[in-house]
Computed example of a mutant assay.
Amino acid sequence: MCDEHANADHWRFSLAVYRQEGVPAHCLQLQHRLGLDVNVLLLMFWAARLWGVAPDAAQIAQADETIRAWRDEVVQPLRQLRTRLKSGPPPAPDPQTDALRDSVKRLELDAERVEQDRLAQWVAARTAVQAAQRASEIEETRALQSDASVALLEQTAVRVVAFYEAQATTALLQGDALPDDPWLPLQHAHAIVMAAARVRTRRL
């Protein structure tokens, strides 16, 4: 799979999941509660369906590290600026600053696309290695029944949430507020899993 094709397929998959009803709200909750990178979560769903196995903790950490600097230094500052312009500083909000906020929103989306493309390349490189080692298993993956596919995505979601919960625990030790319900992240993740399960990857 060439990088350009992998990027396009991954981007279409991510958009197909994210645009389903309720998914943006669940993603936002995971982002706020755990600092979870939604792009990484969607990538891991994509990878799990491609590989036929849930990514392990080391792979999740590697994917996150691949785009950490870009996310921290580009995506998040754009997101923070867009959010801040909703209510201030003066003269915001007004028609002129609303137009500026729309421009920032477009830049944020472009920056997230760069992140998604880099993540897709990361998956493609590892898929090539795995394909050489177990081509037959990959073929079997493409024939998974829907219930097995959901179980695979659920396992992936649990591992991604656990990774970001560990990061959040470190922050809690430094004085941040403790989440009110530790099960909520998994509930939000489950809703996104069901959305991802409805997307037929091969038809994208």
Rank of each mutant, 00 (worst) to 15 (best):
W51H: 09
V160F: 01
K105C: 01
D3W: 07
T156H: 01
D3E: 12
R33F: 03
A168E: 10
R19E: 12
A197D: 12
Q167R: 11
R113F: 10
V123E: 03
L184W: 15
Q116N: 00
I138D: 01
F13V: 06
R118A: 04
G88P: 08
A168C: 07
L184P: 10
N39Q: 09
A124D: 03
A191Y: 04
L107D: 13
P95C: 03
D117Y: 06
L173R: 11
D147C: 06
R126E: 06
I192C: 04
E4P: 04
H32A: 02
H5C: 02
P89V: 07
T66Y: 03
L109K: 04
R79I: 08
A143R: 15
L43A: 02
D147W: 13
D9P: 04
A58V: 15
L153T: 10
D117M: 01
A124S: 09
V53H: 10
P185T: 12
G52K: 00
V199Y: 08
L36V: 01
Q187V: 15
V114C: 05
A197G: 14
Q187T: 12
Q167S: 03
P90I: 01
H5Q: 05
R142M: 00
A125L: 06
L15T: 12
A143L: 03
A131H: 14
V53G: 07
R79G: 09
R33A: 11
A63M: 04
L119R: 00
Q31V: 14
T170Q: 13
D180F: 07
Q80C: 04
A58P: 05
P179V: 10
N39W: 02
A92G: 04
S149Q: 07
A99W: 14
P24L: 00
E21N: 06
R113Q: 05
A48I: 06
H26M: 01
R202F: 08
E140H: 15
W11P: 09
A195D: 08
A157M: 00
R126L: 01
G35Q: 09
V17L: 01
A135Q: 06
H10S: 06
P93V: 13
D3H: 12
W70P: 02
R12M: 02
V199W: 14
S136V: 09
T169D: 07
T66I: 02
C2Y: 15
A162H: 06
I67A: 01
D181Y: 15
M44F: 13
R134S: 09
L173Y: 12
H32D: 13
E115D: 12
I192H: 03
D180N: 04
A120Y: 02
P91M: 02
L152F: 08
L85T: 11
L85K: 01
A143F: 15
D98A: 08
Q133G: 05
L173H: 13
L28I: 12
K86Y: 12
V199D: 04
A177E: 11
R118L: 08
E4W: 04
I67Q: 00
V104L: 11
R126C: 07
L107P: 06
A57R: 13
R142V: 13
I67P: 02
W183K: 10
A162L: 02
V114M: 09
A69K: 11
L152G: 13
L107N: 07
L178I: 12
L184S: 10
E165M: 00
W11S: 11
E140V: 15
A16G: 11
K86W: 12
A168Q: 12
